[in-house]
């Protein structure tokens, strides 16, 4: 279980770090993607467009490097739940929009495949969250093992 949790840490953290790169570079286009979901109030649209990619980067890097692993897994799991709810609501309302997950240039449209992908991502957040020893981690340097 230790190595499963370790692999999940690398995979989930790596995915979120990769996902943030384009959003950090193009906040305006990402704000348009967020707005298309019609869920975020105007007052929060721009702060969220700046904050979300940085949160993904911070938690993703923390999970990969092994700093505050369980907190990082909790944050990324929470974000994934938010994404699942947003995609489900877009599907229920029949919105034909790009998901804004990895690419602000149009990218992947929202669909059931995205829901499935995010459910898998959510499951992958569980081992680092629930397993106490999830493999090599930077925080072992100052906390001792595991």
């Amino acid at each position: 279980m230790r190595w499963t949790a370790f692999l999940c840490r690398l995979a989930v953290g790596g995915i979120f770090v990769y996902a943030c790169l384009d959003k950090i570079q193009h906040p305006q286009a990402f704000a348009v993607d967020i707005h298309n979901y019609r869920l975020v109030p105007w007052a929060l649209l721009h702060p969220w467009a700046h904050y979300l990619p940085v949160l993904e980067a911070t938690a993703g890097l923390a999970l990969v490097l092994g700093v505050a692993r369980r907190g990082a897994a909790l944050v990324l799991g929470g974000l994934t739940v938010v994404f699942i709810v947003a995609i489900a609501m877009a599907l229920l309302r029949g919105l034909d929009i790009s998901c804004g997950c990895f690419d602000t240039d149009g990218g992947h449209g929202v669909g059931l495949d995205l829901l499935l992908r995010d459910l898998v991502l959510l499951l992958a957040c569980l081992p680092p969250l629930l397993v106490r020893d999830s493999g090599p981690a930077l925080e072992q340097l100052w906390r001792g093992r595991p």
């Binding site: 906040p27 704000a31 904050y51």
Partner: peptide, 22 residues
């Protein structure tokens, strides 16, 4: 909080930052 601080810092430094209120 760390992500919030980094966001505030990057928002203050980047030339193409969005206005705080859309």
């Amino acid at each position: 909080a760390v992500a919030l601080a980094l966001t505030a810092l990057s928002w203050a430094l980047r030339p193409d930052r969005l206005p705080l209120v859309a």
